[in-house]
Amino acid sequence: MRVLYFAAVRRSIGTGEELLDLPEDVKTAGELLAWLRGRDELHEAGLSGRVCIAVNQEHVDESTRLDGVEEVAFFPPVTGG
């Protein structure tokens, strides 16, 4: 799965993109977020605040299932406009 990070989350983790094989028990966006936070200190710090999630380029909440999903993104609340 392609996992993308943007803005402060990207800077904190130190990369904007990772290709990851997920453990079988990670089935939702929220479970993926929790799993990522537990990977190392950089992920824990980068994903510690309020994090928004997009699955296949659409805003979702943590309960969204990841079956067949190719791209998940994590980012801070948006500040465009």
Binding site: A54, H59, V78, T79, G80
Partner: peptide
Amino acid sequence: LKTRAPFWKLEEDSKGRERWV
């Protein structure tokens, strides 16, 4: 657009310090 479009502003002040909006 301000609450949904995925854009992020990084501001720089006159001393060259950066901060995310």
